[in-house]
């Protein structure tokens, strides 16, 4: 919460347009998107033909990677952006550098910065924001909103009394697995599914030593597909020295998701959360 307030302050300080989700853009015919979850929403709403460029975090659906790339969401290039002749730049809370965003805004490009989504309600607000700003067809917007509302309702039924001990691992690097602590999207995901984060004692994504891994002793491991691919398959993950010694490793309680659907807090994330809650047993499988 504190961080959100700070970024609003920074935006005001630089004279940038802050969140402006209430109104349709003046002209949303050529849109550049900086942020993977926003691109996913545009595709879900069926208005991808108006997207003329995306950043490098926009890799789902695969078709999005065919669009011109404006680089990484935090290293945008002012001239490069403008060369796509866009009418609107829509970005996540962390698009930058701020100087570049100011430059393109001064050059007359409408800029909309969408608030970070950390909860089910935030995701629904984000979808509404994209639909409003880009002027999506009402039918598509309502259908997506209804689907997300159903998933959010399901997540409200999550049992919080048992709170299984879960570790979320981003990669299994040479320096040890990288785990998600407090103040990460991993924590937000675990909050949604009524699980307890075994790495809640530190902030951010940190490499976990083998001993710390054994001591934290999660019952379930949640991994990104990239972590499994990087390790060389499920067998390699299970024989990893940091994982072999945990309850999750012994009972082979591994749950694997695409990284963006698990941690991106885009339109797929609520479905992933429902799925995860069922696998953790905090939601009865019959529902949803």
């Amino acid at each position: 919460m504190h961080k959100l307030r700070f970024s609003v302050l920074v935006l005001l300080g630089l004279g940038l347009p802050a969140w402006a989700c209430d109104d349709a853009a003046e002209d949303a015919s050529r849109v550049v998107i900086a942020g993977g979850s926003l691109t996913e929403i545009a595709y879900e709403l069926g208005i991808e033909h108006r997207v003329v460029g995306v950043d490098r975090t926009s890799n789902y659906p695969p078709a999005a990677t065919e669009l011109p790339s404006i680089g990484y969401v935090r290293t945008l290039s002012a001239e490069g952006l403008l060369s796509l002749d866009p009418t609107l730049l829509m970005g996540e809370h962390d698009m930058g550098p701020d100087e570049v965003v100011t430059q393109v805004a001064n050059a007359g490009l409408q800029v909309v910065r969408v608030a970070q989504s950390l909860t089910a309600a935030d995701i629904r607000a984000k979808v509404d924001c994209v639909a409003t700003v880009m002027g999506a067809p009402t039918a598509a917007a309502d259908a997506l909103a209804a689907r997300l509302a159903g998933q959010a309702d399901a997540l409200n039924q999550v049992q919080t009394d048992r709170a299984p001990r879960v570790a979320v691992l981003l990669t299994l690097g040479e320096a040890g697995p990288v785990g998600g602590g407090a103040d990460t999207s991993a924590q937000n995901m675990l909050d949604m599914v009524g699980a307890q984060n075994v790495f809640g004692g530190f902030e951010g994504w940190k490499p976990i030593s083998l001993e710390a891994m054994a001591r934290s002793n999660p019952e379930y491991l949640v991994l990104t597909q990239r972590a499994v691919d990087g390790a060389g398959g499920i067998d390699k993950v299970l024989s990893h020295p940091g994982i072999r010694l945990t309850d999750a490793g012994r009972s082979q309680a591994l749950i694997v998701f695409d990284g963006m659907s698990l941690l991106g807090f885009g339109p797929r994330t609520l479905a992933t959360a429902v799925d995860l809650a069922m696998q953790l047993g905090t939601l009865p499988s019959a529902e949803g």
Partner: peptide, 24 residues
């Protein structure tokens, strides 16, 4: 540093003239 700061400083260290504006 937290996640956002880390990404800022990694890219800062790589160097770029893209942040140039007359004011600075």
């Amino acid at each position: 540093s937290d996640d956002a700061q880390l990404r800022t400083l990694v890219f800062w260290m790589m160097g770029s003239f893209g942040r140039a504006g007359w004011q600075t």
